[in-house]
């Protein structure tokens, strides 16, 4: 038996050590780029120019953040992102619950039709160009609604909400119906208070999706005043279409410091954009995993 064999125990120890070490390396590799970005953004500008930063910050300077915070372009993009995310997420939660509640009823009229109606687009979509022309036809081109309206509902969220509501005891609805409550009242007074976890799942899925989206803006928003933060960053750091104005304060510093700070501002913008995601991360983890589990239970 392996338990009594000293060789087996030793090889087990070695295996354990290797497994722990490998997992540690994997965890390090996943967070390293973020750590590097953070270190670059808060180190002293002179160290950035000397390229001495590999892992941890050297020196400490928040100058690039101070300059970023004063940048009106960045704030406009930030505000746009907040607006698009809030509007899209709130309406998505409401629309999902409104349709999920009837769909979760065991005897809804034409429920087989509605099921097929929702499944078909999951397998077959019109594709990029038909949607693009549709948005033009609807007059949404170069209009903030081009970002908001399409994100107001999604089939995946509808199915997650329906699966969740279906799992609630039906007797709650039944007794309310017997008491003569309207469907509207049952939904808002009984179902909605019980559906907070699924609302969190849907809300976080949608919010992260909208916050991270830059492609919709590329397709429909040629006006850079309407750009969300991700598009602002894509133009600034990926396509180099635009540069960031460091403001007048920097003129007081040495040329080396100036170069360093201008480099650091790129890292700071990235940190500012990622910060909401990092702050929400504990919730994201909890509710996203929950979402995967509910989603994989669908019939």
């Amino acid at each position: 038996m392996s338990r009594t064999n000293p060789n087996a125990i030793r090889s087990n120890r070695t295996a354990n050590f290797l497994i722990y070490a490998l997992c540690g390396i994997i965890a390090f590799v996943t967070v390293y780029p973020f750590l590097y970005m953070l270190s670059m953004s808060i180190s002293s500008p002179d160290e950035v120019v000397k390229k001495t930063i590999v892992l941890l910050p050297k020196g400490l300077s928040f100058l690039s953040y101070e300059l970023i915070v004063q940048n009106t372009q960045m704030w406009r993009a930030f505000g746009n992102s907040v607006l698009y995310t809030a509007a899209g997420t709130l309406s998505n939660i409401v629309m999902s619950l409104l349709i999920a509640y009837p769909l979760a009823k065991p005897k809804l009229v034409a429920r087989r039709f509605f099921t097929v109606f929702l499944i078909v687009p999951m397998y077959f979509t019109g594709g990029l160009i038909p949607s693009f022309i549709l948005m033009h036809t609807l007059g949404l081109y170069n209009n903030i609604w081009a970002v908001i309206i399409p994100s107001m509902a999604s089939i995946w969220n509808i199915i997650i909400a329906r699966t969740f509501i279906k799992s609630l005891p039906y007797s709650l609805q039944e007794s309310a119906l017997v008491d003569g409550a309207s469907e509207f009242r049952i939904l808002f007074q009984i179902i909605v208070p019980l559906s907070k976890p699924v609302m969190a799942v849907i809300g976080l899925y949608t919010a992260v999706g909208i916050w991270n989206d830059w492609f919709t803006a590329l397709l429909y928003l040629p006006n850079s005043n309407l750009h969300p933060l991700q598009m602002f960053i894509a133009r600034l750091l990926v396509f180099n279409y635009s540069s960031i104005d460091p403001g007048s304060r920097l003129k007081l510093d040495s040329a080396v410091t100036q170069t360093g700070v201008i480099t650091q501002m790129k890292y700071s913008v990235v940190m500012v954009t990622t910060l909401p995601i990092l702050l929400l991360y504990p919730f994201l983890q909890k509710y996203f995993v929950k979402g995967v589990m509910i989603g994989s239970l669908k019939e």
Partner: peptide
């Protein structure tokens, strides 16, 4: 009536593009 907004949304943004093919 409760279902109407989402049904319309799916109809417009999923089914009309399928027709658009």
């Amino acid at each position: 009536v409760l279902m109407l907004p989402a049904v319309l949304h799916v109809l417009i943004f999923c089914y009309i593009p399928i027709y658009g093919i």
